[in-house]
């Protein structure tokens, strides 16, 4: 090894030129991050439920009490949420330690574990991003283009819900991938 780097900070398997900082929160940070992720998950769901409740109890404007309310939240508004939730579950169920492992299967025929884990991760992230893009589409096509600007909160809540799920999955990822030093201390 003829590089000038000190031996301790050199990882021969790294792929970036610069050392990326490794977030290590420890046991307590792991716990708090998981709590935060759960809270954000529920809060983003309740944002969409809030919009649905308002929509189902919406009354026509007081100066025209016999008009009908022009737009309601329907099943269309929930489709992005379904995609995002599926993606969230896929990402959170995945065991992150397999993403960087080099070891192959015990049978060695199906390809390495890492590539399969990465494929599952790709599907999960695609579902999450698809949900977010779908919520933006609903906001624009259902509320902004037809000119229901007074009801734009329904679409905005949808975007906020899907963004909240993304953020929550990010927090959960960071919290769960921090090292289990706490656990090791207990096992020793």
């Amino acid at each position: 090894m003829s590089s000038g780097l000190p031996r301790s900070s050199y990882d021969p398997r790294r792929i970036f030129l610069f050392n990326l900082p490794k977030l290590n929160l420890g046991g307590k940070g792991r716990e708090i991050g998981t709590y935060l992720a759960g809270g954000l998950f529920a809060a983003s769901f309740f944002l969409l439920i809030d919009a649905s409740t308002i929509s189902s109890h919406a009354k026509p404007p007081p100066d025209a009490p016999y008009d009908t309310v022009p737009v309601h939240i329907s099943f269309t508004d929930w489709i992005p949420a379904i995609f995002s939730t599926l993606g969230y579950l896929t990402i959170s169920i995945l065991d992150k330690t397999h993403l960087t492992s080099n070891s192959s299967d015990s049978f060695g025929s199906e390809g390495s574990i890492a590539s399969r884990a990465r494929a599952v991760l790709f599907v999960g992230v695609a579902l999450l991003a698809g949900g977010f893009a779908g919520s933006l589409t609903v906001l624009i096509l259902k509320y902004l283009v037809p000119g229901y600007n007074a009801y734009a909160y329904y679409g905005a809540a949808n975007v906020g819900m899907n963004g909240g799920l993304m953020l929550s999955s990010l927090i959960l990822w960071i919290a769960q991938s921090s090292s289990d030093e706490y656990e090791y201390q207990l096992t020793v």
Binding site: R30, E31, T34, Y35, L36, A37, G38, G39, L40, F41, A42, A43, F46, L172, Q176
Partner: peptide, 12 residues
């Protein structure tokens, strides 16, 4: 972790 997640969900 799943228990922590559920607790966060319920409190929120």
């Amino acid at each position: 972790s799943f228990g922590h997640f559920l607790t966060g969900t319920l409190v929120s």
